[in-house]
Amino acid sequence: MFQILIQGLLLSGLYALIAVGFTLIFSVGRVLNLAYGVSLMVGGYTFFYTAQVLEMPKLVGVLLAIVVGAVFGLLKYRLLVKPLKGDHVAIEISTLILAVVIQAGIILVFGDATKILHSIIDGVWQFGTVSITANNVAAALGSWVLILGLYAFIKKTHIGRAMQAVSMDQKGAAISGVEPDKVNAATWVISGALGAAAGVFFASYTQLSPSMWVAPLIIAVAIVIVGGIGSIIGTLIVAHIIGFMEIITTTLFAAELRGVFTMILIIAVLVIRPRGLFGREEL
């Protein structure tokens, strides 16, 4: 029981962090950013290169990853999303193509062998049959801090409220003096930065590989479908449902069914509540 609680909390925190940047873009920009997983990959490789190859301090690696993720998000918006104004299918296809192109680029620069990141924070504790690493605790805590910080930012700052406003009514936002273009750009920057931070943690859990963008994208899409694309708190809750379900399945039933229950949940939610458990598309 203790094991499920601890491991569930740790994994769910990571999943929430992965999904939240994706939710943000969909809610504000109404775009399925299929290159979202690439933000995680870019973050992971940036950290790997600075902290592990150049052996700079890990904090520098994390910060640089976030900066690169933010810039990457801005470039995606300026060079891809904005010129394709409003054409959702074209945006979705081109973000997918971008993901594949960047995958090829990563192979070119880093090769296609998978790499393991050092723990960002060292240390491990044993409680009976449960091992807890400081790294995963930091990832979960970090994700809580980032998500709650994001929540406060969205709710309590002018730019955050403007993001919500754009997500709910573009015309209403414009006549309130908000420039949707700037808010969209800011959203892509924040989403890119969150994605990169999630990528550092995700990669430190698992591995770096040129195809690592797929798994987090699936996690994000799953959480967002089940949650109903939209609220940050909904994302947080569903991330915990999926994370705990995975740990419970693995611990009590069969590890090979890890993803199956998640898929069943997604299908069930789609059938019973097509708009998701917290069904709405706005932040």
């Binding site: 994994l11 859990y205 069914l257």
Partner: peptide, 20 residues
């Protein structure tokens, strides 16, 4: 025998079961 999914992100529960 614990069969696990190739896309497994988190092996912590699997190792816990192995120990148990």
């Amino acid at each position: 025998t614990i069969v696990y999914d190739v896309a497994t992100v988190d092996f912590a529960p699997i190792f816990s079961n192995a120990q148990a």
